[in-house]
Design a protein around this nucleic acid. Structure first.
Lengths: 363, 363
DNA sequence: ACTATAATCTGAAACGTTGCAGTATTTTCT
DNA sequence: AGAAAATACTGCAACGTTTCAGATTATAGT
């Protein structure tokens, strides 16, 4: 039973004293070699080499319960030795499993480094899983459902990661309706039914206000994300709550959002700086608005860190270097990507979504 | 011969006066329906609906020469109507064509937005081609050949786009040896054998020097890329040539490269600013070094744009806004990605590389 | 000794596609 | 009219994998 260490070419021969030629002959034909280069090994190659059937080899590699331990070991050895890698097209055709994760990104996400960091985080998580990452950016002008529908209709991935989520995100709804695995960067209003990773923008805004308060600032503005994004509400809530708590005065620039053209942000802030009731602290929903605001403030003859304090959030170290006078709260997109990829894979494997939701609380 | 406008269910029936039931019966069984949801259409579905053979449908959709024009039209109509999309796994298994482009990026490319812009450009070019984009970042610590080998060995893409190319890039050599389509961001020293898109860093440096000269600067430094990158040579050549032409004095900081940690760059520049022979102009090989240098200069009590001028190159608009006093020459990564994707597809289609090389000359 | 049971292994079929080697039918040529 | 050639269509097989329903042998139970 235990014949470890012994080299067995064909373990059937033993019990067959009068074995005829048929028995010794491999049950599978040798794979045809094309030109001169060695062709890529398949199950057939291994079957031929081990003298086993293709089915057995397949089951052995997949650790099926009805294959002998010795056989498994032997098959694995040969497979490793010749560098066997399952043919993805074969698996996909047979099982429908693509081993692909689709990352769908809005083009607006050029928020310095979001794309890069997300891709990195996701790749990191996927590295040893056999999953490939396919990235699809989409135009904000086009229907955001398009790329999602494409993936579902062509069955070109096992799961989707979405960003820029809305409270009632039709893309997420579409996917949930069809039972298609999805993980989102940002919460939706749909409850514990899909995995997500969200930065706690409420806490971010609260901390921002606290910081400004601690620096003695009293008249504070917020450049929020457009109200179409769910996280806009969170940020505003954190802001308002903290403002009330410290009894500070909000200088409203609610018409302005971080998605406005930088020119608009610039001129609006510059105008504000010249007004009698200018703020002495601004919380900026993203980096580009913060950097733009900084320039506008200086254009107005004021100094960031002296006359006005700025708070924002970001992932990249660079910003602290470029504008050390801006308070930066860390938001880690890479961590987000990493978490989402892992969560999505677990979802595909059947795990329930409730345990795969993460709120990243800053500080 | 011409029966346009007439609806033909089975064009065979016409010539068969005494057609028995066999003739009218479709030659292909109806595709089995699983649950309640309509199953995804395949060639078989169309064959059943049109009464044609599977082969005919396939050939009709692929515009084969031996299929009648009417049939083609009819098949296409049905296919479009029911939203047929070829099964990628089927095609891939049969033909070996993956319809995938692999973009392999070095992690260091966090150069603000390079990844994002490249991905965008590539996606843009791939949008209507049926190609998918799979992105693989890799660690600079690991063997850069790893991801390349993986793609080749598992045949998981039809072509590869590489960045951070070296003069004698082993990855490119590896791919060329195996006849695997590759396009590179940046030239190599291998000649007109593979497509590339390169930014003309020689011209960039020359223009930089000219700009500084025009502003009356005479003592100039260059923060170059590490000499391992081929484009480092180009940049240095452009720099040196122009310096000689205008008889300017180089203040060498050759030990410093754009890949050094930002802390190093910062302290080195600050130190330099305090030295007796400080430069009054610096050309920075990338944005992060330029931004870092700007802060260092101010830390030393000097003013960018007044005491020292900075020149750099970049893709994103943001930088001009954050630091309007820095000269920025435009390097369009998106264009690069777009070109490379197109070039790669043409290479896969068999076009010769010589026509697919592009040098992007600034200004 | 004879049968149920467990333990291993197996070929056939199928997933969707395309290249090959045909088969009918019609048209053209002599 | 008869042969040759062109036109339009088609089965079959194969790509590499896994599921299914056995098949074979050894083991245990009576």
């Amino acid at each position: 039973m235990c014949n470890a260490g012994r080299i067995i070419v064909n373990n059937k021969a033993e019990s067959m004293a009068m074995a005829d030629d048929e028995t010794r002959a491999p049950r599978v034909d040798a794979p045809v070699l094309d030109g001169h280069r060695p062709t890529r090994p398949t199950l057939k190659t291994i079957a031929y080499m081990t003298g086993l059937g293709i089915t057995t080899v397949s089951r052995a590699l997949n650790d099926a319960p009805d294959i002998g331990a010795d056989t498994k070991k032997r098959v694995r050895l040969v497979a490793d030795q010749i560098g066997y890698r399952p043919n993805r097209a074969g698996v996909r055709l047979r099982t429908g499993k693509t081993n692909v994760i689709s990352l769908i990104l809005s083009l607006d996400e050029e928020i310095l480094g979001l794309t890069t960091q997300m891709v990195l985080g996701v790749s990191e998580a996927l590295a040893d899983t056999g999953y490939h990452l396919i990235v699809t950016p989409y135009d904000r002008i086009k229907d955001p459902l398009d790329p999602v529908r494409y993936v579902v209709e062509t069955e070109s991935a096992d799961g989707i990661i979405l960003s820029s989520t809305r409270e009632n995100d039709p893309r997420v709804q579409y996917l949930l309706d069809r039972g298609f695995p999805v993980a989102t960067h940002g919460r939706t209003g749909l409850g514990p039914v899909h995995p997500y990773f969200d930065f706690d923008n409420e806490t971010f805004a609260r901390i921002g206000v606290e910081q400004l308060h601690a620096r003695g600032r009293t008249r504070i503005s917020l450049i929020a994300p457009p109200s179409t994004y769910f996280y806009s509400q969170h940020m505003i809530k954190g802001f308002v709550d903290a403002m009330e708590k410290f009894e500070l005065l909000e200088i409203p620039i609610r018409s302005l959002t971080i998605d406005d053209p930088l020119d608009t942000i610039h001129s609006e802030i510059e105008r504000l700086m010249h007004s009698k009731h200018r703020p002495d602290g601004i919380i900026c929903g993203n980096v580009s608005s913060a950097l733009t605001a900084a320039v506008a403030i200086e254009n107005a003859g004021l100094k960031v860190g002296v006359d006005v304090d700025l708070v924002t959030k970001h992932s990249a170290e660079l910003i602290r270097r470029v504008r050390p006078e801006i308070f930066v709260i860390n938001e880690d997109f890479r961590k987000a990507g990493n978490f989402l990829a892992r969560a999505l894979i677990e979802t595909i494997a059947g795990k329930s979504a409730a345990e795969l939701q993460f709120l990243d609380v800053p500080e």
